[in-house]
Design a protein around this nucleic acid. Structure first.
Lengths: 340, 340
DNA sequence: CTGAAAGCGCTAACAT
DNA sequence: ATGTTAGCGCTTTCAG
């Protein structure tokens, strides 16, 4: 039984017109003190709650932003959501969450839904690696009039607004550190060919080359974190075969699998193998694993702010100068990297 | 620049009335094959996307559910969100996320927002411990015509729909197991006086009493997981002082703190102290910690289903018989509990 | 300062 | 089978 109280009810109860009632509720225009009081009283007594669907329809703004992510369960995503929700609240926005399970088709569907919902904007960690992979009919999803801010990754070949860590630089620094410790054969464990991963590998390569160490592509293994296939085992073994002295893990998802496997093989860190991992989690602290910590809170926060700016720009026709925001990640030095 | 294409545009382009266009787009009523084709063609060419705000306003249903949680960052909540989003998708619903930071005032505000948004329902992990704590003017938030399904916790004194684990039973079993190992002084680390915690403690007490072991309230310590106050240290010390042989941690949030502290004190598990923890996480597996694993996926799934049933009931005036759904948790026996 | 009324885009009852 | 039209609840222009 939906007994919605409308602005008309309030107006009638207060003995004014809907316009006047609307003015005081909405807080705009001029209303006499007398009317204001009457309306406020009516609102209170009737327990009036504006119907946001009607408001949104009329005002063409929904106070809603969407976050479309590859894998909600992921710790990075989780923290991102936390930060986004927090910042969104400050701006009076609610947050819709969508999980693509890293499937571009789902991503398209979600984007369509969000167009339909007329959300104020979307924060997107895209499952699409390259714009050339998306069918023509879906391309406009990424270039319509709905503001999109990308986080963590970019779609290659697409001009877009992005907020992410300084992947290349910090990756370079981390590998430099490893090299300084004497490591020359450094295995890399990566998820998939996302822009982020590429940038990190670029940094890796750059550091190697600066020291005249050959860059060997077959020291890099890609592994979907997938419980069934146990891909990572294969990847890990492949890397170990090459007699690496250190493993550089580009994604914390993969870290636990590595740890378990090393434990099973009774290998200890850093004595038998050094380990350097992306993304800080509590266990890294507990196990003293040297880690690259991303400024996730800040990324989420800035993504929301940029998004809202974009939305405003839309009206003001004012250009945003920066469309590529890079935030500094930190290396947290612990004890998982030894000399060689 | 918002150039929304409306059903009227589609109709005009297809050379039919808005009603006909609406019928084919909405998939109801009877339309000739010829008209259908024309409309479908128009939809495609114009790239028409229905305006969901208008739909929602008209149909008074939003295909949106909200999840209001105490602490989004929490692993349990994270997994819950994952499950909820997944199930909601299946029913064509999007999910709004709200974080109360365990603050009842924020919870009220979020509930009000959701009333305003006319969401189809709310899944709530309430920060409110007892209905008598909430001011009169807010009480109707929990008893309005917006369906609410509680997860994990109940508000004491409020008749409501709940989906949660069999806290008392499984807690009883777990403590029984500890007792069977010879433990008599079992310290408990809890978060706060939520219904969930109470139930778990009841199970603990029951197991003790069945074995004629005295129930000592001061073996139970409450500790907000709060990075600043380091409450847990105090709590942990208090417990240790009592010469307990096992610690029973009711919430995984607290587990990491305990582990770190024990490590610092160079205490090993289970030799120096046994440990049994609620909520399974990857690290528990890695560190071989015996754990009570909740069926989080199932809880999320059922919460969504029940919610949607409730929403339907609203119309059908059909009663839902069960309003209290209890799902079985499991004890995963590993190696953190020794004999004494 | 206030009120009447148009209209956001869609659905569905009603008429043809 | 198809079209006309009256709202859903709100905002806001335009008159007064």
């Amino acid at each position: 039984m939906d007994t919605q109280i409308t602005i008309a009810d309030v107006a009638k109860y207060a003995g004014v017109s809907t316009a006047t009632a609307g003015r005081v509720v909405g807080g705009y225009g001029n209303v006499s003190e007398r009317s204001r009081e009457k309306v406020l009283k009516a609102v209170k007594e009737l327990n009036y709650r504006p119907n946001m669907m009607a408001q949104s329809l009329r005002r063409n703004t929904t106070n809603t932003i969407a976050v479309i992510l590859g894998d909600i369960k992921n710790n990075y995503c989780n923290r991102l959501i936390y930060a986004i929700e927090k910042e969104a609240q400050k701006h009076g926005c609610n947050v819709i969450i969508c999980n693509t399970h890293e499937d571009p088709l789902r991503e398209y569907r979600h984007l369509q839904e969000m167009y339909s919902r007329h959300v104020d904007g979307v924060i997107l960690m895209s499952a699409v690696k390259d714009i050339s992979f998306v069918e023509e009919s879906y391309k406009d999803l990424y270039a319509g009039d709905m503001p999109i801010v990308f986080v963590d990754r970019t779609i290659r070949g697409l001009d877009s607004y992005v907020v992410q860590s300084n992947n290349r630089e910090i990756s370079h620094d981390a590998v430099n550190y490893l090299i300084g410790l004497g490591h020359k054969k450094i295995g890399v464990l990566a998820t998939d060919d996302y822009s982020t991963v590429r940038e990190r590998i670029e940094g890796y390569r750059q550091a190697l080359e600066e020291h005249g160490i050959p860059y060997l592509p077959n020291l890099i293994r890609y592994s979907q974190q997938d419980e069934e296939t146990q891909d990572y085992k294969q990847a890990l073994e492949n890397i170990r075969e090459k007699k690496v002295t250190a493993i550089y893990v580009l994604n914390n998802n993969l870290c636990m699998d590595v740890l378990k496997e090393l434990k099973k093989q009774q290998l200890s860190i850093p004595e038998d193998l050094s380990l350097l991992v992306w993304d800080d989690e509590e266990i890294n602290d507990y196990l003293d694993i040297t880690t690259i910590a991303q400024p996730v809170e800040q990324i989420g926060k800035n993504a929301v702010r940029n998004l809202l700016k974009l939305k405003k720009k839309e009206k003001d026709a004012e250009k945003i100068t920066e469309n590529y925001e890079t935030l500094k990640a930190d290396i947290i030095f612990r004890k998982s990297c030894g000399t060689v």
